[in-house]
Write a protein that binds this DNA or RNA. Structure first.
Lengths: 120, 120
DNA sequence: GTTGTTGCTATACAAAAGGATACTACTATA
DNA sequence: TATAGTAGTATCCTTTTGTATAGCAACAAC
């Protein structure tokens, strides 16, 4: 039962290509995932720390997005039995490796903006 | 008035970082942009060709998304005065260069999926 | 003169995403 | 006893996104 798809195979087939790229996009989609990942990129943080880091997010949204990220293997949640209780969120190794992809997007985004503006 | 931001600057500042990456994400967000880009990656196509290429898209959505992509400098639209009228859509150079970014996303997506599955 | 083709647009609606506001249980501090 | 901090939930509402279905104008072939 070898259903693993190689880069080569995925790239050659438009359908597999779109599906696999969407896998990546789905992990970071929505208004808040990127800011949350950004907040955790360099250090683990607690719920309220992230909240203070992203001024306009509501606890409902933060809670929901953290759950999403955890389910997708992007964030690890650790509970410490202190009083009051302490919960720490940190990025998984896989999530940290997304940094390279984000760099590529950053690069393209800056360049594209320049190209588009220079044409107007 | 030099408001151009370098990769280095953007990478160092979390806010600029998130903004610039979002620039890239916004260009390909929504359900249909990626399939449309995929359809145009190797050849220019006409409206109904794209429609046939992406079976479940409605003309309303295709029309809307193509306009979006055109406005964002991703697609060039050319009208030929034939009967019936012919309209061709093709990716801009900037859009084609997005291919490299998509490859990175593809790579990460495949790898992440493997990592997450192997842990369960 | 009916049907088909091209590249769409109009209207109405359903679903998904996100926001506002209030609230919980527990404890520590003033 | 009142206030504040911890990590969230619950409920309701608005905004955004996408769908369904129909139709248009210009021709051309049958």
């Amino acid at each position: 039962m070898e259903n693993k798809i190689s880069f080569k195979e995925a790239k050659a087939c438009p359908i597999q290509f779109v599906l696999a790229v969407n896998d990546t996009l789905n992990v970071i989609n929505g208004k808040w995932k990127l800011p949350i990942i950004g907040s955790l990129l360099f250090e683990k943080r607690r719920f309220t720390e992230i909240q203070r880091n992203i001024p306009k997010i509501t606890p409902r949204m933060l809670s929901k997005e953290l759950k999403d990220l955890e389910m997708n293997g992007m964030v690890k949640r650790t509970v410490y039995d202190t009083t009051p209780i302490t919960v720490e969120y940190e990025l998984t190794e896989s999530a940290k490796s997304l940094g390279d992809v984000l760099d590529k997007m950053l690069e393209w985004g800056l360049q594209h903006r320049e190209t588009v503006l220079s044409e107007s």
